[in-house]
Structures are given as structure tokens and as C-alpha cells.
Design a binder for these strands. Sequence first.
DNA 1: CACATGTCAGGATCACTGAAATAT
DNA 2: CATATTTCAGTGGTCCTGACATGT
Lengths: 169, 169
Amino acid sequence: MNHDRPGSDVSPPECLWRLPSWLLGHVAGDAYRLTVGAVGSAAARTDYAVLAGLAEFGPTSQAALCRRLGIDRSDMSAVLDRLGERQLAVRTPDPASRRQNTIEITAEGRQSLAGLGALLGQAQDALMAPLSASERDHLIELLQRLVEYHRGYAHDAGRRPPDSRLSRQ
Amino acid sequence: MNHDRPGSDVSPPECLWRLPSWLLGHVAGDAYRLTVGAVGSAAARTDYAVLAGLAEFGPTSQAALCRRLGIDRSDMSAVLDRLGERQLAVRTPDPASRRQNTIEITAEGRQSLAGLGALLGQAQDALMAPLSASERDHLIELLQRLVEYHRGYAHDAGRRPPDSRLSRQ
DNA sequence: CACATGTCAGGATCACTGAAATAT
DNA sequence: CATATTTCAGTGGTCCTGACATGT
């Protein structure tokens, strides 16, 4: 029933309006609703992330996938069950180390990934609508710096240290 | 048990790394955990927002408070019950319009607000640690623009039109 | 009557806790 | 033994739906 929704008396307290965590909560909520709307369901949103990871990483263990996507391994099982049922990914026990699975994306999975990616692109445009292209880039860059710092992601694309060849030999 | 947490194999897929909604989800999650950690409980985080609103708006109706803080009115009742029990806010029926309550912050509420504000400030610094002062301001401004656009907040403080005195008389 | 307010009961999703079974 | 992987059961919070009683 979506109670509440702006009236004319709506302006936030200064005190929260300058508070990054409050702003982030609202914007992330909007982003969530927009992407879920574009993609059709909350599950499909998670599926996209997992499929994107599988497509880019190649066959991976389930735990590594969790670490790289920031999804708790308690929740990953259900996601992979769902992807498995729909034949979008396959889970095979790893012969080399029998305690872990090898997860791999299927051809259908890649198709689904492409479709979801297109839908998500629209949602991103809707989300970032009020910002110019350079502002969007700047926002993305600032968010990336925060993610790197707090989640220990070492994003290295295009940031290969200048002496990388030297330091290796 | 906080499963997962970075290893050395951790780097996100390019595909998500440029996706604002994914970045926002992670950063908002970090912000949430930092603020909850600083403030002691998730409930205290909500209390802060409500107390901040009450302190800045003055006595307000419950529904107006919901709209301005972006909290659903289904959930506000419980929050006010909690604040009432702890004597941080009082809920009195409005004599002028008997269908609405007037909510007001108490002296204890202001004390609690100040304490929580200090704790939250530390969490914000921790969150924004990797960014310079001007980068923090820029991030905040970009997020504000998105919140305004998507949630219909009309933020006007400090943006009084240059001719505000003229336009009023 | 339509409409706003406050309250309640409940669902859905998410991030997380804690523990078990299994294998290295 | 300690450690890592996979899975499951369950919690708490937030957001949301739908309804109801009470007022204007």
C-alpha cells in the first residue's frame, strides 16, 4: 500500500541531509527498487550479479565467488539452487578438492545474463538521470574508492603499478 | 558469524564494478554496519533520525514526521513507543485536530541526540576516511541531487533565492 | 461522501549468526 | 588437531501490503 510518499511539507532535517549514511541508505534503496523493477524480481537482480561473476571469472569455487561478489555463503546455496534449476549455471563437485564445488555458467546462463544486463542498463540511466556524464563518472569513482577501502577489494584494472615488471624480477 | 570476508583472490567483476546500484548497495551496507556499530544497535540508529527530526522541526504530527524522514507510518508507531518508554519523546493527542498526535522531543531526548550525534560523527569519518574533504563534499552533493530527484525532497536551506526578500514584499 | 491519521497484523527480502557435516 | 567449504535453521531490520477505527 506504500504508505507515505512526499507531500508538500517534505524536506529533511539538515542534520540528516549532510549525513552520508542517511543519503546512502535512501539512494541505495532507490537503486534497489529501480533495478528490481527493471529486472522483474529481487531474485533476478542477485542472479545477474552471480552470472556476471561466473561469466567473468570462469569456473570458480563457490566460496571464492562469494568473496568476490560480497554475498554471504549462507545465501549463495539458494541462489545456485535456483540457477541450477533453470539451467543457467552448473554446480559440479571439484575432483581436485572434494570439499568444494566448481560453478560454471551455461550457454543459457550467458543469454540470460545479456538480457538482464540490458534491462539493468535502463535502470542505471533512470537512477542517474539528474547527473551529467562526468558527474556520473565521478560518483562512480568515489563509490569505488569507498568500496575498495572498506571491503578490501583490490581493483587493479588499469592500475598496474608502474614498476610491476621490475618488482617481479 | 560473518562468513566470508576478503581473501587475496578478491576483486569484483568489471561488469558490476561500474554498476552504480551494485556500488551503492555495498557502500550503503558498509555505512549501515559502521553506524550501527558506533551507535550500539540498529534501533538507536533509527532513534537518532527521529530525534534529529523532532529537534529540528519542533512539535510535529506523526504523519508529517514520517514523510520528512522517509519512514513508513506502519513502523513509526513502534519507534515512538520505544522513545516514549525511555522518555526521549512525548506523544500527546493534538487538541486542535483529535485525529493526530503531536510529537515532541524532551530534554532527555536532546541529551541522547547529542550523544548519538557524536558517535555517528565518528562513524561518518570512518566511512569517508579514504576521501579528501572536498571529495566528501562532492559525494554528498551528488547523493543529495539523487535523493531530491527520486524522493521529491525539496531541500531549500541555504538555497534561498537571491531575491527572497523582494519576492516576499 | 472522500480524505487524512494512527494503529495493527503480516509478508518479503537481506545481511547476518551459529552450527553441523565434510574434507584437507 | 586446526582450517576451509558447503549447507541449513533461524534472527532482526527494513520496507511494503492491506486493512481498520477514528477523526475532519
